[in-house]
Design a protein around this nucleic acid. Structure first.
Lengths: 343, 343
DNA sequence: ACCGTGACGGCAATCGTTTTCCTAGTTTCC
DNA sequence: GGAAACTAGGAAAACGATTGCCGTCACGGT
């Protein structure tokens, strides 16, 4: 058989079942009062023609498309994916389909997508992507609700869901304290990056609550392994003693780990090591496997989607919502890989 | 101002411009014969109401939705993303929007998505994802064209676009030969994985064409760094001399690199090293940076999308299409990072 | 003065579905 | 036996946009 020529319409179904179009509609949607026998006959006809109601025509009538747009501002990367997947999952459960739009960090392209999505009458939009700072709102007075996920909108009235990075950094420090370390160093990304500043500040603050401080000012650099290795050199040259390093990313941590080993320091016996992001590629390849802070991006995406659904149904949640991070303990902080309960 | 209450319809525009609905439509679409003054008046009214034509209503009339569905079978991963982005890019250029569906390797979910997409009257579908083997077609006698990207359909009549892995492996071997290596080892993923077998076979075959063979049978294992390190141990224990290693993945290559360095062998002086996938995270973190084979997944996605567009317009390209791989030379095979032209 | 001819725009059908109203039977009950 | 009360299903009006077909002007030519 070749491929089917044309989609069956409800008129085809009605004709085959020997009823009127309206009756067929009622039969398929369980509306109106029909004899069970009629209902079955229509259903059978629909099955036979593999009829699927035209969603476009349907939404023309209902005013809702059960569709949302997802715009990623930067090109889709390691961070956007889980957010995207979490959102897709939550929306799928609400019978919503997702339009994917890759903004590629181009405002023109982005505005084009907004217009396209509006013309497609999406019920709402999710904006995601990575940025060092909050981003300008995607549009003013849009006729549909918008939720910013991972990234946050510069307008505090907009609904943004972002990871609780400060909380994550505090958890990291608390874990190091819990395993008995007090001389902690911090190696992280570039200072102009908001995440780096926030995490460093939170770590410092948490230590201060226990009357402690970092053994040296935070080492700002890049997010890479290379920087991790370099930073260890700086740290060792400074002759400051340290028994733990809190890293701003797993890549940095891995570089740190390699450099420490090369310098003859054992992880975790001499130095406990904790990363950030819980990126499996790094945490698993690290020797030993790396303890890290998980941003729970998939959960964040899911949560953002749920807020969007709520907003669509008339209950918006304006403002900035911090999504909690999770500590994942591996062997770079404790000998056995048993989970250490937090205080 | 609060958010706009409702989307403007063409009737609103017509009323504001003082013309009939049909005239408004003609004015906005450049059809019919209208006075320039009228046209401007309508356009101005549309602008004022920020009118965007309802795409659903429009496609009801035209029969086309300018929409395609993209189904990823496994959960979206490192390989699917570039394919997805390439496709999205090519489709966007054709004014098409993309529905994203994450099949999560669940056939039920997948079938649900196919139904949903059909009810949304997509003009076509792209199926992507990673599998060890060809996959069962997503549906029989679908009323819209389907293109498989990266993954391939078990039905040889379906249009599949897949990387030319054999060609890539041959390029890798050719490069090693070109830089003067003849004692080549091959470390790769699990033997049950089709890619591992194909690449190993192609490498062997290419060597045979020069009257050579691998210094040892291919070492099948996993795709991980850990396996790369282990495999070097096996290789060294075997006392076979080798001056190059062709690895089945960049992760393996990185493990190999670390283990070689630990064993006192210099890369590339003693051993030239080439990976597969050209995954920036690995190639850049590797010391020295890793030469690799790029699958050009983004190009592959773009190409798949173009075939889909062609199929939608009535010119299908049935069958399996191999998308060429690219050699990317870095310092793990040549001292200077200058590009070496291929023979 | 009359007809022909463009130019301009309105009218209405159409796409596929849902939903409201209505009509024609069939019961039911007094 | 006849009116009321249901029941089953049909007819038609939406929903928003496009488009083919017509009517109505104004103008020019004979």
């Amino acid at each position: 058989m070749g491929k089917l020529e044309r989609h069956a319409t409800i008129a085809d179904v009605a004709a085959l079942a020997g009823v009127s179009v309206g009756t067929a509609s009622k039969a398929l949607n369980g509306r109106g009062s029909l004899r069970e026998e009629t209902r079955m006959r229509v259903r059978e006809a629909a099955r036979q023609l593999s009829f699927e109601a035209n969603a476009g025509a349907r939404s023309l009538h209902s005013g809702r498309t059960y569709t949302v747009g997802m715009i990623t501002t930067d090109t889709i990367g390691r961070f956007s994916i889980p957010v995207l997947m979490g959102a897709e999952d939550a929306l799928g459960a609400g019978e919503m389909s997702v339009f994917l739009c890759d903004g590629r960090d181009d405002p023109i392209r982005e505005q084009y997508y907004v217009k396209t999505l509006l013309s497609r009458r999406v019920d709402g939009m999710i904006v995601t992507g990575r940025r060092t700072e909050a981003r300008a709102p995607i549009g003013a007075n849009l006729p549909v609700p918008v939720v910013y996920a991972f990234i946050s909108s510069a307008d505090p009235g907009d609904c943004s869901v972002v990871p609780d990075e400060a909380g994550g950094a505090r958890k990291a420090v608390e874990h190091l304290l819990a395993v008995g370390r007090t001389r902690i160093a911090h190696i992280t990304g570039p200072e102009h990056h908001n995440s780096a500043r926030v995490r460093a500040a939170a770590a410092t603050e948490r230590l201060a609550e226990d009357g402690l401080s970092l053994v040296a000012p935070p080492l700002f650099g890049g997010w890479s392994e290379v920087w991790g290795r370099q930073a260890v050199g700086i740290l060792l040259a400074g002759r400051t003693e340290f028994d733990a390093v809190f890293c701003g990313s797993d890549q940095i941590a891995r570089g740190v780990c390699d450099a420490l080993r090369a310098a003859g320091r054992r992880v975790p016996q001499d130095v406990a090591l904790i990363g950030f992001d819980n990126w499996d590629v790094m945490t698993e390849a690290c020797q030993p496997p790396l303890t890290s802070i998980d941003l729970d991006l998939e959960g964040l995406g899911r949560s953002a989607a749920q807020m969007l659904l709520a907003a669509i149904n008339g209950s918006p949640s304006p403002g900035r919502h911090a999504h909690p991070c999770r500590l994942v303990v591996r062997e770079s902080t404790v000998r056995e890989s048993t989970t250490v309960p937090l205080p």
